[in-house]
Structures are given as C-alpha cells and as structure tokens.
Simulated scan of single mutants.
Amino acid sequence: MRQTFYQFLMTERNDHGTDEVAQFANNAFFDQGFPKLSDNYDFVSNYLELNAGYLPSMTIFDDAWARYLDKMN
C-alpha cells in the first residue's frame, strides 16, 4: 500500500536533527491543517505555499517530495 506524503514525512522527523527535511517534518507534525491523506504533489504544494509559514523555502518541500518518490518506487 502506498503511503501518503504525510505518513512518509513523519518517518523523517528528528527532534534533534539539523536536516531541513527533518525540521519540516517536525513542524508539519504540529500543523493541524496539513493534508494528511494526500499523495498529490500539486495539492500538498498549494497547501504549503498558502499555509506553511514554518517552511522557509519550497525547495525543502521539493527535496522531501523527491525522497518520498524514491521510497515509493
């Protein structure tokens, strides 16, 4: 079964890590509105652009998405 992006992102959490994707995952964990059931790039990307003040750059999301695709293949 394919994981949603959020499920994958939660595997990247690290409270003491300095990796940008880990920090993104830590912050997404506390985002009550995060689209937890989506595996659609455009849907998640649009949500983050409009609602994720905790994400300093969309490049971090792109990096996380690339890791997600690698893991799903």
Score class of each variant (00 low, 15 high):
V21D: 01
N14G: 15
K71H: 12
Y41L: 05
I60M: 04
N73M: 11
Y6A: 13
D15E: 12
F8E: 01
G33H: 11
Q23Y: 00
A22P: 02
D63P: 01
T18L: 11
M72K: 14
D70P: 02
T59N: 12
M72S: 12
F43Q: 14
V44T: 10
K36W: 01
D31H: 03
M10Y: 03
A64M: 04
A28P: 01
T11S: 13
R13A: 01
F61S: 07
Y6M: 03
V44G: 02
R13G: 02
A25C: 06
D70S: 14
I60T: 13
F29L: 14
L37A: 14
G53K: 09
R13W: 02
E12I: 06
D39C: 11
N26V: 07
D31T: 03
N26A: 07
N73Q: 13
F8C: 03
Q3S: 12
E20Q: 12
F30R: 08
A22N: 06
L55H: 06
D62Q: 15
N27P: 01
F24L: 14
A64W: 04
T18N: 12
F8P: 05
F5W: 03
K71I: 00
R67W: 08
T18Q: 11
S45E: 11
P56S: 10
N26G: 03
D42Q: 15
S45F: 14
N26E: 06
A25L: 04
A66P: 00
I60C: 05
G53H: 10
E12V: 12
N51Y: 14
L48T: 05
P56F: 08
M58I: 10
N14K: 12
E12F: 00
F5C: 07
L9F: 04
I60D: 03
